[in-house]
Structures are given as structure tokens and as C-alpha cells.
Design a protein around this nucleic acid. Structure first.
Lengths: 124, 124
DNA sequence: ATATGTGCAAACTGTTTGCACACGA
DNA sequence: TCGTGTGCAAACAGTTTGCACATAT
């Protein structure tokens, strides 16, 4: 059904180790240090697979690129519309997942994003 | 500072009246019935403005298009990875917004999305 | 042996942008 | 009048995909 590949493993590891919500291009840069021959297309393919499995999530920051996150524990993303920074706020529990189940929905992941201006940018 | 335009008004009205989370292309189709001369570029520009004002929000369904929502009251989106349907689950309160404020963040909107399979698709 | 994954590069498509003109205040 | 908004079309950029080859089981 699904074979092992060092490329997918590397992508997964990088995301799980990172806290910076990198873009596909950034991940590509990082993975090349481990698997130099990897191509950007493969990065995208693996990101799609991992996301479908619920191993990673993705967040829209509004700059046209998708950001990826290897942390699937319940948390909110505070996305600054000005500097595009993403701040995590961890939660006890993901009640969205619980609600979904109540509706007959089979959830694999959830993303809670709050948009606005971060502390620094709102002072200006 | 910001002028009135029937184009922006029409885009806004359509979104506030709709419950279907339409794409920009779909909105364009609808708006043309009201302002036939409107262009797709203008639709995008107005969607960006409205979103920046917190009048509308947008949701990624994962098919490469952004969906727009004129309902900014607290609710969760249940997005089916198979049929791409979006089901709304309304909430009492948007605690993400409250949390954000506690962190010195100035929120303008929030999006809570749960991905998975809807009732219908998970049966197959 | 056979299904699955990869690298490469071209193709795709949603979105953005420059420009000349129109409109609102 | 003067700043803001629009229409058009071209340009852009992130992402996807076809194909031939490589790898996993």
C-alpha cells in the first residue's frame, strides 16, 4: 500500500523538529541537506501524503504560500497580517474534533487560526 | 480614505447572503448578474479588502482554491477531503479570539477548520 | 515481479498587478 | 480636482503532473 522512502521520512522529520511553520520551498531547502537529490515535486507529493494521513497540518498565512506544521497537538495559530509571523498557543483539548465526531464526521486533523496584528506590529 | 463602489457592495452582499462558501470564480459569476461589467481582478481586490476589514473570512479546502465566507460569527468548518463539502457548526463563543487578546495580539478574525471525511463519504 | 516513489521539467491555474480610464467625495 | 476604484490582459508563482527510471517489498 505505502512504501518507505527516505525522502518522505526526511520531510516528516524536518517538520516534526521544526517550530517555524516553514513553506514548501523552505522545507525543500532543508531536506536537500539530508537527501541532496530530492526534487521540489517530491516534497509537495510527500507533504500531501503526510497531510492526508493527519501527520502534519498546513496553515494559510495569506501571502500565497501554504505553511506546514508537524505539531498536530491542539493549538491555535496567531497569524500577523503585517509581519506574517505565526505564534502558537497550545490548548488542553481540541473540541472542534469532538464536535465534528458528534456530527458523524470522521476528522483527521484540525486547524484553528486567528488573524490580526501581533503585539509588535499593532504598536506601530 | 475609502470610497464607495457598487462592485464592493455587491461582492459583500453576495457573501453575506450565501451559505455555500463560494470560490472567487463562483462569486465572480454571481456578481456579474448584478454588475455585469465587473472583472475578476476587481473581485479579488475587493475580497482582499473585505477580509482585511474582518468583514469576511476565507477557508482553504485543499483543492487549490480559497473559499470565502460572509459569516463571521463563531463557527467551525467541517471540510470533507473527499467531496470538498463544507459544513458549519456554530459556536457560542470564539475563545481563540479571547486567547489571542490575552497574548497582546489584536485579532480581526478567526478560522477554525476540521478536516476529514463527511458522514456520507466515510461510509464508502 | 509488481506496485509505489522519485527526479526532472513542462504545464497548469488561481491570483496578482500595471496601466489608462472612470468614478466618488 | 484628487485620491480611490475599475476593467483588461499580461505576468506571476506556487503547485501539480506526465513520463521514464529507481526503489521497496
Amino acid at each position: 500500500m505505502k512504501n518507505y522512502s527516505k525522502q518522505r521520512e526526511a520531510v516528516s522529520n524536518i517538520l516534526k523538529a521544526s517550530k517555524s511553520h516553514p513553506s514548501a520551498a523552505k522545507i525543500y531547502e532543508e531536506v536537500k541537506k539530508i537527501v541532496p537529490s530530492i526534487s521540489l515535486g517530491t516534497v509537495y507529493r510527500n507533504l500531501a501524503d503526510l497531510q492526508k494521513n493527519g501527520e502534519i497540518i498546513s496553515v494559510s498565512v495569506g501571502d500565497g504560500t501554504e505553511r506546514y506544521d508537524g505539531d498536530t497537538s491542539p493549538h491555535i495559530h496567531l497569524v500577523c497580517r503585517n509581519c506574517l509571523s505565526i505564534t502558537d498557543v497550545h490548548l488542553e483539548d481540541d473540541f472542534g474534533i469532538r464536535f465534528a465526531t458528534d456530527y458523524g464526521f470522521s476528522p483527521d486533523s484540525s486547524v484553528y487560526t486567528v488573524y490580526g496584528l501581533c503585539d509588535k506590529c499593532s504598536r506601530k
